[in-house]
Design a protein around this nucleic acid. Sequence first.
DNA 1: GGGACTTACTTTAACATTGAAATAAGCTCT
DNA 2: AGAGCTTATTTCAATGTTAAAGTAAGTCCC
Lengths: 420, 420
Amino acid sequence: MSVTQSGARPSDLLPASILGLLGSRGPMTRAELAAALRVSAATITQASKDLMARGMVLELGQIASAGGRPARPLSLVGSSGRIVGVKVTATHLAVVAAGLDGTVWQAESVPFEAARPDALDQAARSLGAILDGIDQPVLGVGVGIPGAVDSLESGVADSPTIGLHNAQVGAALRQRLGLPVLVENDVNALTVAEQVYGVGRTYSTYLVITIGRGIGCGIVIDGQVYRGAGGGAGEIGHIPMVEDGADCPLGHAGCLESLIGSSGLMRQARQLGLGQVVDGSASFDREREAIRRLAEVARRDPAVAEGLFGWAGGWLGGAVAGAVNLLNPEVVVVLGEGSEQWDLWQPGFEAAFRAKLMASRRSIPYLVEAWDEDKWALGAAALVIATSFDRDGATGYQGELVRERLSHAASGRRRPQARV
Amino acid sequence: MSVTQSGARPSDLLPASILGLLGSRGPMTRAELAAALRVSAATITQASKDLMARGMVLELGQIASAGGRPARPLSLVGSSGRIVGVKVTATHLAVVAAGLDGTVWQAESVPFEAARPDALDQAARSLGAILDGIDQPVLGVGVGIPGAVDSLESGVADSPTIGLHNAQVGAALRQRLGLPVLVENDVNALTVAEQVYGVGRTYSTYLVITIGRGIGCGIVIDGQVYRGAGGGAGEIGHIPMVEDGADCPLGHAGCLESLIGSSGLMRQARQLGLGQVVDGSASFDREREAIRRLAEVARRDPAVAEGLFGWAGGWLGGAVAGAVNLLNPEVVVVLGEGSEQWDLWQPGFEAAFRAKLMASRRSIPYLVEAWDEDKWALGAAALVIATSFDRDGATGYQGELVRERLSHAASGRRRPQARV
DNA sequence: GGGACTTACTTTAACATTGAAATAAGCTCT
DNA sequence: AGAGCTTATTTCAATGTTAAAGTAAGTCCC
C-alpha cells in the first residue's frame, strides 16, 4: 500500500489511509504505518498528531521493545463502522456486513431475479431492509458482479451470464440507499480483499485464480489491482485451449471455461458415465450440489478422481502456467468454490503446472485458500475499506464519501447523514 | 508519460523530462508539455523559465493559433547529444548511434562470441572504438539482451539461448566505457522504444508482440512497461500450446515458440517437403535467410503460404487472443523480423485471432510495423532517453547520470567528464 | 469594430511531504 | 553504572507541486 499526494489542495487521503489500516489490521506503531503506506515517519507523526487531536486515534501507552526506543502503537478510538458487501448471482444476492478488519458480523441471502426489469429496485429494497438492521455506522456498500464493470465509481455492469445488460447498478443503489456504492467485477473484488486482508500483506505482484461457475483471474501488479483498458482484465477462463471445444456463451469455442467451468465439468462427468449423478442439475443453484456429489464419487473411485477432477486440474495447470510465463508474478493464489475439492484437482494441476512452466520459474509457490460461503460477498465489502488506500483516485467521489464517513465513524458519531 | 515528485529534496526530474520530450519529439508548447507530462501548466512555466535562464531551451517566437492566445513552442538550444543502443546476439553486436528523436546516425555490426570467457571485454573494446568515433556527446548506452535481466541499473543477464550466465553486463561495460549503461531484455527495450517514439504517444495500455527467432511480448500498463516480479514478464513464446509438441530449451514442451519460432517454422517447412530450401541453415545467422527463401516460395505457392506461414499465423493468433482476453489491452502492436513476411502470416493470424477473442473485444485493433535491421538496437538506445521520464526510479543512479549528461549536452558543452 | 469566447501562459499563496538532525528511550555489555 | 548501540519519534527548514485567479493575445460573429 502506498499513499503519496503532492501539490496544493488538501485531500485527507493520508488520514483515511491510517484509519483504514488501523481498522483493517488492528493497532500499529507509527513506524509500521510509515512502512506500510510508504511514507516517511515524519509524515505519520504529523498526521497522527492531528487524528489524536480530533479524538479519532489514541496511543496505547503500552510498549514493545527490541533493542531500541519502545514503540507506541496507535489504535482507533472506536472500532466502529461496518462495511457491507453484496455478491450478485442470477438467482440471489449474498450480503454480508463486516467489521473493518473483515470479521463477518452478519450474513444473509436474499432472492434476486436479474432478468426482471425492476431487478435493481428489488435489490435496493432487500438491501435497504438489511441495512436498516445494522446498528453501526455503515461506511459504504461494495457490489461484486460476474461480468464487466466500467468503473468502480459509475458502476455500469454488463453480465451476459446472469442477464444484466448495461445496468446502472451503482447509480440505482446509491440513489435508493443513500450510501456510497462501489461496483466491481466479482473476481476483482475478491482480489481487492486478498490485497487488503490476504497475500497482499506479503506479496505485491501476484495472480488470484478463482474456480467457481467460471474460471477467473485477478491480477495484482505492484500492489495495484490491474483492471485492464476496459475493466475487463483477468479473463483467464476465456483463453483458448482446444481447437474442437464446446461453444462458449461469450462467442468463441474451446476456451478454458467451456472446458472445465461448472458446465464443462458436468459434461465431462456425463462422458464418464456419471449422468445419473449429474442429472437434473442444469439450474444455476443445483450445479454446486452436483459437483459436490461428483466429488464424493471421486473420493471413492480413483478413476473418477483422475478422469474428472484430475483432468480438469491438468487443464487449469496448463493455463495458469501460461499466465505465469506471460506475467511472471511472485505467487499464485487459488480460491473459489472449487477449492473445496482441491484435494481432487491438485494432482492434475500440480503435474501440468510444473511441467509447463519455464524452468526458471518452476518453483513459484501457489497458495490454496480455504473457501467459505461468504467470501464472495466479503470480497465485495473489501472494496469499501480499500477506498481509504486509493491514492490514484480510481474510486472517485464515492471513495471520498467513504473516507468522510470513515472519519465520522472513527470519531464516534453514529450514522452521519447520508449525502450522495 | 508522467512525472510527479513530491517531497523535500531536489531531483531535477521535471527539467530532464522536458529536455527528453523536446529532444525526442521536437518543439512543443508549454501546454503540450503539461499534458504529456501530466503536470500543471504552472509547473511547466516555472521549469521552462529555469531552463531558458540556463540557456538550454529557447522560445521559438513563432506562433500557431486556433481561437485563443497563440502558443509559443519551446525547443532545445542544441539538438545535440546521441544515444547509443546495442543489441546482443550470439554471434554479433548490432550497434546504433541515434539522435534523441530516434534518427539513426550511424549503424554498425561487430562480431561477438557470447560463449568466450572474455566476451564482455571483447564487447567493451568494440563499443569503445565505435564510441570514440562519435562526434557528439553520448548520453549513455542501452543494451538489449534476449533473456532475463535483473534490473536496468545493475544489468545482470541470464540468457541461455546465447550462452550468457549471470553475466555482469552493466558493471563491465560501465567500468570500461565510462558512460551510463542501461541493460534490459531486448523485447522490453523495443517496448520502451514503442512507448517513447511509437504507439505510446496514442495508447497507454498495450501489448507489443515480436516475431523473431523467438516470439516475445512487451506489456505496457498505464504507460509503464511491466517487467514482472523478476524482470521476466512477457514470455508469450512459452505459453503452452500443444500436448505433444517439440521440446523447448527452456525446459518444457509444446510452447508457442517451439512451435512457430524460427526453428519451429523450419521444422514445419521440412515436414511440408521443403527440406532443400531450408537445408544447411541450422546456424544462427542463416535462419533468417532460410525464412526469406521460404517466403519467396510461399508467395509463388499458395499451399506453402497456407501450410507454413498461415499455419504459424493461426497459432500466433490464438496465443495473442489468449493474452488479450487475459489482459484487456487497448491495442496490439506486431513487429520483429517476422513482420517482413506479415502478408503471409496475416490470413492465418486474422482468422484465429478474431475467432478466439471474447465477443466483446473482437474489434480490438492491431498494428503491424514496418521492420528494419536496426530496430532492435534502436530499441536499446531508447532505454537511454527513457530515463529522463523515469518517475519511479527504476533506472536508479544510471538514470541520474543520464539526466545530468542530458543537461550538459543541452547546454552545449561537449563531452562532460564521465564519472561512473 | 466591439463584445463574447477561447486558449495560452503567469502569478500567488497554500500545502503535503521530505531528509536531516535532534531527541527519546530503551537494550547490551563491560 | 555508564558507554555504545539501536530503534522510535519529533522538529525543522526546504521543496516541488498545485488550484485559483489573473493576464495576454488571439478568433468569431453580429
